[in-house]
């Protein structure tokens, strides 16, 4: 197996929680993993991106080459488009639809959504609303992970076990909440892909 993932968002949105779950899952399965993160200046509200590569064979480059990503997971709609050139012909864009507007020239929301909805392979999801409905407001990123799950070449159970490990120390309630968020995202993607 081999999966290349681009994780996109805005500094402070916590995209690394998504990466961490996948990282633990990779380790458990003795897969190789490379995860290039954005630290430093851009974390102050700038565009941030993480390249995540998982494979059962050794991985050379820390960065995903252009046109090779299986999935772009973005927790913000405009950011999902910034990295389109990394996506493979058959790759999926999985994006949250809630804009994060911290710049004065943010494009018209309708324009962004129109472009997103016209992409050949896309799941556009209101992860914040789904998380809220589950009373799991802080798990919207895990909803996003769930929505991306069908395109990761990774069994859902592997992600579940990753979540158990990450949130285990915070108690069963937190684990359950995140598992629910994962499944809600997954179900949405299966119905809307």
């Amino acid at each position: 197996m081999k999966t290349d993932i681009i994780l996109a968002g805005v500094g402070g949105q916590g995209i690394l929680s998504i990466a961490a779950t996948l990282g633990i899952a990779a380790l458990e399965n003795n897969w190789y993993l490379k995860q290039a993160e954005t630290h430093g200046m851009s974390q102050r509200g700038g565009a941030v991106v993480s390249h995540l590569r998982i494979s059962d064979k050794p991985i050379a480059s820390d960065l995903v080459p252009l046109g090779k990503a299986n999935v772009i997971i973005s927790v913000e709609p405009m950011e999902s488009l910034r990295y389109l050139d990394y996506l493979s012909e058959t790759g999926y864009v999985v994006t949250n639809v809630k804009p994060f507007v911290n710049i004065s020239d943010y494009p018209e929301e309708a324009k962004i959504m129109e472009y997103i909805n016209n992409l050949p392979n896309v799941v556009a999801i209101d992860a914040d609303k789904i998380a809220n409905d589950l009373n799991a407001r802080r798990s919207s990123n895990i909803v996003m992970l769930g929505a991306a799950a069908p395109f990761l070449n990774v069994e859902l159970s592997v992600l579940e076990s990753g979540l158990r490990q990450i949130f285990g120390s915070k108690g069963d309630d937190v684990v359950e909440m995140n598992l629910k968020a994962l499944h809600a995202g997954y179900n949405f993607a299966m119905e809307n892909k």
């Binding site: 509200g45 480059s61 960065l63 252009l66 488009l81 389109l84 996506l87 018209e108």
Partner: peptide
């Protein structure tokens, strides 16, 4: 990156026009 090195070796990994729409705004840190 691998794309740049690939091109230098004569193995382009990716070609074609950018698919990124031009209305995408820069998001500098603030």
């Amino acid at each position: 990156n691998a794309d740049i090195v690939g091109a230098a070796l004569g193995y382009p990994t990716h070609s074609g026009e950018s698919k990124v729409p031009d209305f995408i705004a820069n998001r500098p840190p603030s």
